[in-house]
Design a protein around this nucleic acid. Structure first.
Length: 514
RNA sequence: GGCGCCGUGGCCAAGUGGCUAAGGCAGUGGAUUGCAAAUCCUCCAUCCCGGGUUCGAAUCCCGGCGGCGCCUCCA
């Protein structure tokens, strides 16, 4: 049984979808007025893994991530850049999609854009007006919060504790808490025709309209960053629940936010200081665009998408992650242990890990360990891993079992001497393969090691030359070693190390890697 | 001010009432190696502080101290 933490009830609940066997997930995506930063990737990466795990657990999952391509900030930014709102949205959407791809997020089924659903948005607002939950004033339409008895339950706040937006619309609202469903357009602003005149949707209504269109009036999981609980999700919930007279979502799931570390982070800006502090203190603050976060593409270029993905999955999705590039680098070191094992497996079996079939559900991944101690260990690691994933998608805990599995496999190879050339024990080889199949199954749930990383394909032409030169160096060194001329052999090895190349002498010959 | 979250070894990070407190990075000693690298084995924390509840708490309650988020746009 999968358990899920629900923001609405503030408890972990057994996961039972509304319709047996089917799950609908809606994740709030970005407003595409600027390039995405690493914080935007937290939700997509974790939900990408959540979808994989739910499918693996036997559910038919539909995952929706929206793109907000109409918004006040888009208007302002596009004007600054002298381009149309549409063009800015198109460019920034492309940036977002590229980043998602780099991080291996490829499970999204539908990515609706607000501007493509204007009809549905307007119809939704009309329905709210007709039912008396909303009112229009001079071309603006507002949701009347007092009409919703449940308002504030999700974010746990009472009406008088909220401040409501000030701004120019304040005078027209019946109450400060009311929020805009439709905003009238000034002559130069992009607009759509509506029963209330030319205008554009408010921030929250698109999600209500699009989720209904794609997933229905009530669906299983709604996700987003913790910062969206109020006002965004509270307002979405109010709109949808009032409009349909039933709950909008069964499980509200919110991921923790990323913070910028003080020193090597530099992704975010500096937090506002309270004045009386000395200023060298290590400041950690939420990463956000308004504080100048950016440079995700560069970061991916330096670290690679897989490391970043693994870094995000290493901690629990509800906890805060402090961004640090050194942290990402350490994570990368840990990943090489897997990569070495995959190479080891290839040397022994001749099979590529990346070409092993992926068990796509729990039962096909199961196997009979028989009396084999090693396979019993593998089975135990697998069971523990899955138990942690069942418990609110505890990827951080589950990853520890992956490392345990690596160690078990290496130990098995050492103890059975599977690596020595004259060992053709088919039973042990079969056990080894089974263990790697399990590794493949479990890592695929996290969306890592899906395919071989081609990190340096930009330098394709040099690659062949480098390989030739290295073979020459290794041959020279081998000669020296055969002659017990270790001084020369070591000189070659040390010299190569200085340019970042490590040599490994193994029974079957020397090998090099960067 | 209101509503929340967090504080586990040098660093990162699981665990939230009961086996010897996961795992990673760094470090230690050993096996292996011509020496290394890789791999394996070994060692490395009583959980911010003070009370309380309990047969028993890192895990629940109260009080401190420290950090952070939301209440305004935000993944």
């Amino acid at each position: 049984m999968i358990r899920v933490y629900n923001t609405l009830t503030k408890t972990k609940e057994d996961f039972e979808p509304l319709q047996a066997g089917k799950v609908g997930i809606y994740l709030c995506g970005p407003t595409v007025y600027a390039q995405s930063h690493i914080g935007h990737m937290v939700g997509p990466v974790i939900f990408d893994s959540i979808k994989r795990y739910l499918q693996y657990s036997g559910y038919d999952v539909t995952w929706v991530v929206n793109i907000t391509d109409v918004d006040d900030k888009l208007i302002v930014k596009s004007r600054e850049q002298g381009i149309s709102m549409e063009q800015l949205a198109t460019e920034m959407t492309a940036d977002y999609l590229t980043n998602l791809k780099s991080l291996g997020v490829d499970q999204i089924d539908v990515m609706p854009r607000a501007t493509e659903h204007m009809k549905h948005i307007i119809a939704f607002i009309e329905s709210l007006v007709d039912q008396g939950f909303a009112y229009d004033v001079d071309g603006d339409v507002f949701f009347e919060v007092e009409k919703d008895a449940n308002y504030g339950h999700l974010s746990n706040r009472s009406l008088d504790s909220t401040q409501g937006a000030g701004g120019e619309a304040a005078a027209r609202k019946r109450s400060a808490n009311d929020f805009a469903l439709w905003k009238s357009a000034k002559p130069t602003e992009p607009s759509w025709d509506s029963p209330w005149g030319a205008g554009r949707p408010g921030w929250h209504i698109e999600c209500s309209a699009m989720s209904r269109e794609i997933l229905g009036e009530e669906f299983d999981i709604h996700g987003g960053g913790l910062d969206l609980v109020f006002p965004h999700h509270e307002n979405e919930l109010a709109q949808s629940a009032c409009c349909h007279g039933k709950p909008m979502v069964k499980y509200w799931m919110h991921n923790g936010l990323m913070r910028a570390g003080g020193n090597d982070g530099k992704v975010g800006g500096r937090a506002e200081q309270d004045g009386d502090d000395d200023e060298q203190a290590t400041v950690e603050t939420k990463i956000s665009r308004s504080r100048g976060a950016g440079g995700l593409a560069d970061l991916i270029g330096r670290q690679g998408g897989q490391r970043i993905r693994f870094f995000l999955l290493k901690s629990h999705y509800r906890s805060t992650i402090v961004f640090s590039e050194t942290g990402i680098e350490e994570t990368g070191k840990a990943l090489t242990a897997f990569e070495r094992l995959f190479e080891r497996f290839q040397r022994i079996s001749g099979n590529s890990f990346f070409e092993l079939p992926i068990a796509d559900n729990k039962s096909t991944g199961d196997f009979d360990a028989g009396e084999c101690d090693f396979l019993l260990q593998v089975q135990a690691h697998r069971a523990q891993y899955l138990a942690k994933m069942d418990d609110d998608f505890n990827t951080g805990g589950a990853i520890s079992d992956l490392f345990d599995l690596v160690r078990s496999i290496n130990r098995f190879i050492d103890q059975t001497s599977l690596e020595s050339a004259d060992n053709a024990d088919t039973t042990n080889n079969a056990s080894l393969k089974q263990a790697l199949l399990t590794m493949r199954e479990l890592t695929a749930l996290l969306g890592i090691f899906m395919s071989e990383q081609t990190e340096d394909d930009t330098m394709g032409e040099d690659q062949g030359l480098t390989e030739q030169l290295m073979q020459l160096m290794l041959a020279l060194r081998e000669e020296a070693r055969a002659n017990k001329d270790f001084a020369t052999a070591d000189r070659i090895r040390d010299g190569l190390l200085e340019v970042g190349i490590t040599i490994e002498d193994r029974a079957d010959g020397a090998q090099w890697h960067k």
